[in-house]
Design a binder for these strands. Structure first.
Lengths: 158, 158
DNA sequence: AGTGAAACAGTTTTGCT
DNA sequence: AGCAAAACTGTTTCACT
């Protein structure tokens, strides 16, 4: 399952992340190789799951999703059943763009994208009605300084 | 600059977010239209900046980026010059995948992706040597429950 | 503004080195 | 493995409705 990624693979991944609409030929030239080897490496990395979904980044504000909250959650419950229900809810809710289980006294952090504060409150009410939560702090984003799905591949020496 | 997005546009955006590798014909069929209108709507939304970068999602763990931190920052400085330098640093650093200015007593939140705790510490040392920061709390992610750049478009009624 | 076809470009396969 | 050509699929443009 785990592929060994070499320097050329990494160059290809960097190029694809930057702009997945470029042609094979352009990418090959950019990474200093040619079509066939680049093509077979991309295919292998897709099969191995290193390369996942191909997508386009959209302008959230232009689409009316103008509010972004980071939600810090503490819970007193740690049974498997509670956790399964909680995780299922997070995965199902499209407003939840990030959800992480944390080390330390805060148990979970979420990033939630919604149209406005009212829509956040609806999400929040739905969440706490589904699972018992001990303490919630919502941090409202005033300004998105940066938001990118692009991994910092240049900083991995390997 | 701002385009009016109608129901068909939104369907196209949802389809593109889900899988930008599909052919125009597949997308047209999926949204109940045909090639030319879908093509011209996509072109217009690209020109308007509603549709941005086309990219591929990669597996961070497989690429050796195994650590993810959320960083809560309080600062005592609020002059323009300090802020410009701070924002510039965040935008330049590829490890910083999210950076938001917040309302409330925490001033900023960052999401930082790095290879390991040592790499995080290097980032942290570099950050505080460049700009004065009053208080920093780093939350370590133990488990990425969800992480998606896909906007919850279905939940915007407009 | 949508349809259908023509022209063009890119991807994917294959056989050769 | 890498290269070059062939076959195929998808994109982009255009004339017509």
């Amino acid at each position: 399952m785990s592929v060994q990624i070499d320097a050329l693979d990494r160059k290809i991944l960097i190029a694809l992340q930057e702009d997945a609409s470029r042609s094979l030929e352009e990418i090959a030239k950019h990474v200093g190789s040619s079509k066939t080897p680049v093509w077979s490496r991309i295919r292998k990395m897709k099969e191995a799951g290193v390369i996942g979904q191909q997508t386009v980044l959209l302008d959230a504000d232009a689409l009316g999703l103008e509010a972004c909250f980071f939600v810090l959650i503490r819970t007193s419950e740690h049974e498997a059943e509670w956790q399964n229900k909680f995780l299922k809810t997070l995965r199902e809710r499209a407003e939840v763009m990030e959800a992480h289980r944390l080390a330390g006294d805060i148990d979970y952090i979420l990033k939630v994208r919604v149209a406005n504060a009212r829509a956040y409150d609806e999400f929040y009410q739905a969440l706490i009605s589904e699972v018992r939560i001990y303490n919630v702090t919502a941090l409202l984003s005033m300004e998105e300084i940066k938001s990118t799905p692009l991994l910092p591949l240049a900083s991995v020496p390997s």
